[in-house]
Nucleic acid binder design. Structure first.
Lengths: 209, 209
DNA sequence: TTACATATACCTAATTATAGGTATTCGCAT
DNA sequence: ATGCGAATACCTATAATTAGGTATATGTAA
């Protein structure tokens, strides 16, 4: 079956380039295009349901991140493949958090783009080579989280206070708990995240909470 | 003297709004406008030197952050006032790091906008009320740095290892120093940065090294 | 050359974190 | 109702950090 695609980018030139690249490819079909996030939302709501959305991260009116958040909430069956410039690591991570299933840089070659599209269509993730370290870490972290390591409310609370520099005793006082209890939570966090030191926990908290 | 301003935003509607707001204000003059970062750069290089640039953070082609970095390097006398949506804390911090002298949210009222412009023109900083905590921290930190606190090579080395989770003893072994020496360096870092806890040092290191 | 910053090293004491246990209560779901 | 996760609490022991000192050698700038 043909994979239906919608492209969204505020540079028409780029859309045209992608269309040219994919026009000769069998098995994929571009069913619509949008020049900003709002147009993209309108397209989807107008029953133009694609299998995959290829979208720029930074777009006028509504950006790619906001659109992705909305789509993964309302239409989780549609996969989002983010397009990014080189130096937008922070944005890419936001896109991943928003629910994007992969990203490719804008200077992507035909072979890689087609490969990414097919991977996503099959339910997989795809990321451009030469991942910045931060994105690798994001991915590893997601794996850990999805496996077995998610923290309870109390544990998250403790971790947040920890990252603010509170000692066990201070946390205990603030939360009206025994220091022993706080320490138990800390030990459980250590086990779940496989992080042994306070230092590591602070870094984890800053990245993930 | 009249304060010369250039506005940059990819939403013409917003530019028009600001122009309307400032048109009746004496002492300020909008000398040009741009719809993206590239246009803004071209304007400046075409000798259209403003006192203040009012710019959106997210713009097509070249974003506000990149423009600000360039400007603070080549034209440090031009002050950048960033415009942000509500939920772009990360972007705002990037703008501040890039050299912006203040920011206001896009729903700013006339009185506040004019106040911000005058403050920047006089060489000050201006930040919208209801600052997210992170931005307050950024600001406090900049004050500390600009005052007196800079670290020696050895101290930076120690701080970096600390942020990697090394204990004093491990650092001592690695650097072929006595644990006592490492602890002395740590104490000096504490004093210089006015940070007492390991937790705080890790956060400092992640932000600044 | 005198003064100052840097880097080094040592001592002691108090506080905090790490790590190994065990155990009880509560609420929710099978 | 039984079992299980979550939250609570306690005990012990070791490791690490924090904080207060003092002190020496070295190179550099006033």
């Amino acid at each position: 079956m043909t994979i239906k695609i919608i492209i969204a980018d505020d540079h028409q030139l780029f859309i045209d380039g992608i269309k040219l690249i994919l026009s000769k490819e069998i098995g994929v079909e571009i069913i619509a295009e949008a020049n900003n996030g709002l147009e993209l939302i309108n397209l989807i709501e107008a029953e133009k349901k694609p299998d995959i959305i290829l979208t720029d991260i930074r777009m006028p009116i509504v950006d790619g991140i906001s659109v992705t958040k909305m789509l993964t909430k309302d239409f989780p069956e549609i996969k989002v493949l983010a397009l990014s410039m080189f130096d937008q690591t922070a944005d890419v991570i936001e896109m991943l958090d928003a629910g994007a299933k992969g990203y490719v840089t804008k200077n992507v070659e035909k072979k890689e783009l087609v490969s990414a599209i097919h991977t996503l269509a099959k339910g997989g993730y795809y990321f451009s080579k030469n991942l910045p370290e931060e994105i690798e870490n994001w991915f590893k972290h997601e794996e850990i989280l999805s496996e077995d390591a998610y923290l309870t409310k109390r544990e998250i609370e403790i971790l947040q206070l920890l990252a603010k520099g509170r000692t066990s005793l201070q946390m205990a006082t603030q939360l009206k708990l025994s220091k022993y209890t706080v320490d138990t939570h800390r030990k459980n966090i250590h086990k779940k995240l496989k992080i042994k030191s306070n230092t590591g926990l602070v870094k984890y908290a800053l990245k993930n909470l």
